[in-house]
């Protein structure tokens, strides 16, 4: 068995958009002589993902993330280029491939709205041609892991978004996909539910070796779920790096939050190279430290020497900032 889960060469997709002049005459003219404009959604993407990897596919709105996923799942046909997913060409062997992959689109429900989730489970088991006994065992296991017991017999329209999403992801695990595409799986969910869903996906990756390919707006999804990040912008790949390295290199800043035991007076901050005051309010202040200029230890010890502290945390800046930084330097 090949160790490659998916591979693309120069994968591109563009489509024609009708251009219409304003006004009635414009409308009529475009009816007889439509003017088309080519819009490039995805531009020559070369990508290789190994089995068992967890890849985050990041980029701003309209960067071509969803279009790429839809080409890799065989939903869309590319304009040019090649792709091989689990050894198959997605758009030519869509049905065959579909047996082996799973997909969750955060904004599109695959559950039947008026029916309880259990009905969708039954339907999916038939569509993927699962053996009855195998299906029942697998379902029991998923219900257990995703804690779906209480929701299974309630019509989907009455479930909360978080409950629904857990069902959505559980359904997509039913046929043991070797490769799972997640398109914005945590969109609109609260922190606790997000966390739970990440854990469940990680567990599947660990236990079943499922390859995970994920797009997200949420930096947390990438930080906690993925080992590798691919950033695309204007349809092309901007950066492809391990998440750790991304954090280490692109992110050379740390944020230190302090709570003093007495209120902070301006001008009392020790003079340290590469450290700047971001904000201060009463006893609280926030400092940004550039690690290229100074070590975190020296800053911390200087602060401890100067102030009486109630609390202190050191953390990474949010991933949004990192991505913005990459766009800034790359685009």
């Amino acid at each position: 068995m090949s160790t490659v889960a998916l591979q693309t060469h120069g994968l591109s997709k563009s489509f024609a958009v009708k251009r219409k002049a304003a006004g009635l005459s414009g409308s009529l003219r475009s009816l007889w002589h439509p003017q088309w404009e080519e819009k490039v959604a995805v531009k020559r993407i070369d990508l290789k993902v190994d089995r068992g990897e967890r890849v985050a596919f990041l980029g701003p709105n309209g960067a071509g993330k969803s279009t790429t996923i839809k080409m890799l799942t065989g939903i869309l046909h590319p304009t040019s280029g090649e792709a091989e997913v689990l050894g198959l060409t997605p758009w030519r062997e869509r049905t065959k491939l579909a047996f082996r992959i799973g997909a969750v689109f955060g904004q599109k429900s695959q559950l039947w709205y008026h029916l309880p989730p259990i009905d969708t489970f039954d339907l999916i088991s038939r569509i993927y041609e699962l053996k009855r006994s195998e299906y029942l065992a697998r379902r029991a296991d998923l219900i257990d892991r995703f804690e779906l017991g209480p929701y299974l017999d309630i019509p989907v329209r009455k479930l909360s978004l978080g409950e629904r999403m857990r069902c959505e992801i559980a359904v997509s695990f039913l046929h043991r996909p070797q490769l799972l595409f997640l398109d914005e799986p945590t969109i609109g969910l609260d922190v606790v539910v997000k966390q739970r869903i990440r854990e469940l996906v990680l567990e599947a990756n660990r236990v079943e070796g499922t390859t995970v390919f994920l797009t997200s707006h949420d930096a947390g999804d990438m930080e906690e779920l993925c080992s590798r990040a691919v950033v695309i912008h204007h349809g092309g790949i901007l950066l492809d790096a391990p998440v750790d390295r991304l954090k280490r290199e692109v992110l050379s800043r740390k944020i230190i939050s302090l709570t003093l035991s007495s209120s902070f007076e301006a001008g009392t901050l020790p003079d340290l190279p590469g450290t700047e005051l971001m904000e201060s309010e009463g006893r609280r202040l926030k400092l940004a430290v550039d690690l290229k200029q100074t070590g975190i230890e020296s800053v911390v010890s200087a602060l401890i020497g100067k102030f009486r502290l109630d609390d202190m945390t050191v953390e990474d800046p949010p991933m949004e900032e990192i991505i913005t930084h990459i766009y800034g330097s790359g685009g």
Partner: peptide, 13 residues
Amino acid sequence: NGDIAIRLIRPIS
């Protein structure tokens, strides 16, 4: 609205 996507990820015509 793109719901066709959830039909096409299935192994069914």
